[in-house]
Design a protein around this nucleic acid. Structure first.
Lengths: 257, 257
DNA sequence: ATGAGCGTTGCACTAAGCGCAACGCTCCTG
DNA sequence: CAGGAGCGTTGCGCTTAGTGCAACGCTCAT
C-alpha cells in the first residue's frame, strides 16, 4: 500500500539470502541506485541493516532484538514452557509448541532432550503446514470459510508417500482432527518420524496454540507413541487452564473460572 | 533519511513493547490515523506485523524467520559453534560468542551445560558493553578515534562496585586488553560471576568476534577460572584459523594463507 | 597512468504520501 | 431501544517528499 515502505521492506528478505552490495539491491528492487541507497540508509539508521567492512549490506542486529522481544511477549509460550520441559523429562522425546499466524504455522518453542544446543534451529521457521500434527489442530479450528479458502490455496508437497495429497484429503483430515480433539503425523513429513499433538485453548475455547511430541521409528513405534497421547493431552490441558484462567502477573490461582 | 520508511520502521520497536491499536500507534508516531493505518498495512503485508483477534497490532512472524536467516548467514557463528561445544564439554562452564555491530556488542551464540533449554534467552540482546569481557576485546580493536568517541558516548552503570566507572577507566582497560590479547570481567556485571575471554581474528588480524567462559564464584574462584585462559585462547585461535583460512564451502584445508 | 566499477551528491519533476473530513461499525449507556 | 462515543476505514485534493538522472570522486586493477 505504501510504495516507499514496500520497497524498503522488500530489501530485508533479499538480504536474508546473504550480503549484497548497493548495485545488486537496486537491480533486484528495480529502482535507481540512489533510491536504493536512501532506503538502505534508512534501514541502517534503524539498525535493521548493517554495513560490513567490505561495504556490502547485511541484516542487522536490531532484528534479533526485535524478534526476541516479540517472542517474549507471546505469553502462551511463556506459560507453556515449563510444562513442555516437564513433558520432555517424562517422555524423553522432542516437544514442540506452535501457533497459527497469517496463513502459516510456526514453531515458537522446542525442547529436545538429545541435543541440548542450537534449539532455535527451527524455531521461527514455518512448519510443513499440510502434514504436521500441530498444523492440523490449528487449522482445524479456523472458521469454516477461512479453513476451506486456505486449504485450497495451499501446495501439497509429497514429502513421503503418506503426505496429505490434496485439499480434499486435507479438509477431511481436519474434520476428523476437529472431531477427536487431537492429531497425529505418522511419517507424513519424514518417513521415519511420528508425532502426536494436542491443542491449547484460550478462555473462549478457541485453539491458540498446539503442542506435539515427536519421535523417530527407531526409538518408539507409532503405536507406542500413541500411548503417550493421554499425557500429551493432559499437559496441553494444563497449559490451557493456566492460559485462560490467568491472573496477569502473580497470584497463581488455579480453578477460578 | 526517508521519512515514510523512517516512520514505518519506528513502529517496530514501539510494538515490541507490546500490542497496540491504531490510535496509539498514530499518537506515538505523531501522525494522522490514516497515515498510521497505511504504514501498518504495508508492514502487515510483509509479515512484520500481525493483527491479532482483538484488532490490535503485534510484531509478526516473518521477523523470526528473518532474524533466523540472518543468524545462519553469520558464518563466524557457524564455524565457531562446534568449538564452543567442545570447550564447554571440557570445562563445563557457560561459553559465549559475541560480535560488535553498530555501537553494540551482542551475543550470537551460547552454550550452557547446566540449563540445556531456553538458550536463546539472551542471544540477540545487547551486552553490558562497559564491563563484559567480550565487549572489551571487541572495542579494544576498534580504530582509535572510533573507540574514543564511543567510550565517551557510553553510559557507565555501576552494576557492582567493580564495574567500569567512566570513559577514562574504560579506555585504560581497553588499552591493557589490547596489549595482552585477552580480557576478564571479574564481578563487574554481577557480583559473583567471573569471565575470561579471548578474541577471534579474521585473515587481516582484525577482531571479528570474541568468546568467553563464565562461571560463578561458588563453582570456581577467579584464580581458578584464569587457569582456563590457555584453553580459551587455544579455542579462539582454532576458530580464528578456520575462519580466516576458509575455503568457501567444502575443502577443510587448514594452513593455506 | 588509465579506465572501469562502485558509492555518493544535488537537483528538477511529479508521483506518492499526507491530513482532513465524512462514513460505518460495534459496543456502551441512559 | 435510541442515542452517542470510540474505533477503524475510505476518498480526495494539496503539496511534500521520494524519485531518477547525470555528474562526481574514490578505489582498484590493468
Amino acid at each position: 500500500m505504501s510504495q516507499t515502505v514496500d520497497r524498503a521492506l522488500s530489501i530485508l528478505p533479499l538480504l536474508a539470502e546473504g550480503p549484497a552490495d548497493l548495485g545488486q539491491v537496486a537491480d533486484r528492487l528495480g529502482v535507481h541506485k540512489s533510491t536504493a541507497l536512501r532506503l538502505l540508509r534508512t534501514l541502517h539508521e534503524h539498525g535493521l541493516v548493517y554495513r560490513q567492512s567490505d561495504q556490502r549490506y547485511r541484516l542487522g542486529a536490531r532484528l534479533f532484538a526485535l524478534a526476541q522481544e516479540a517472542m517474549e511477549n507471546l505469553d502462551v509460550r511463556e506459560i507453556a514452557h515449563p510444562h513442555l520441559v516437564r513433558l520432555n523429562e517424562q517422555c524423553g522425546h522432542t516437544v514442540h509448541l506452535a501457533v497459527y499466524e497469517e496463513n502459516e504455522v510456526l514453531y515458537i518453542d522446542k525442547v529436545e532432550s538429545r541435543y541440548p544446543v542450537r534449539m532455535y534451529s527451527r524455531i521461527g521457521k514455518p512448519v510443513a503446514i499440510t502434514v504436521a500434527a500441530v498444523a492440523k489442530l490449528l487449522l482445524a479450528d479456523l472458521p469454516e470459510p477461512e479453513r476451506r479458502a486456505l486449504a485450497e490455496k495451499l501446495d501439497y508437497p509429497m514429502y513421503t508417500p503418506r503426505s496429505t495429497p490434496n485439499a480434499e484429503a486435507f479438509l477431511k483430515e481436519l474434520a476428523k482432527v476437529r472431531e477427536q480433539g487431537w492429531a497425529t503425523d505418522l511419517g507424513g513429513h519424514e518417513e521415519s518420524i511420528n508425532c502426536v499433538a494436542a491443542p491449547i485453548r484460550g478462555a473462549d475455547g478457541r485453539v491458540v496454540a498446539a503442542m506435539s511430541v515427536s519421535a523417530p521409528n527407531v526409538v518408539v513405534t507409532a503405536d507406542e507413541l500413541l500411548t503417550l497421547l493421554p499425557l500429551v493431552r493432559r499437559t496441553a490441558d494444563a497449559i490451557s487452564g493456566e492460559y485462560s484462567g490467568r491472573t496477569p502477573v502473580h497470584h497463581p490461582d488455579k480453578d477460578t473460572p
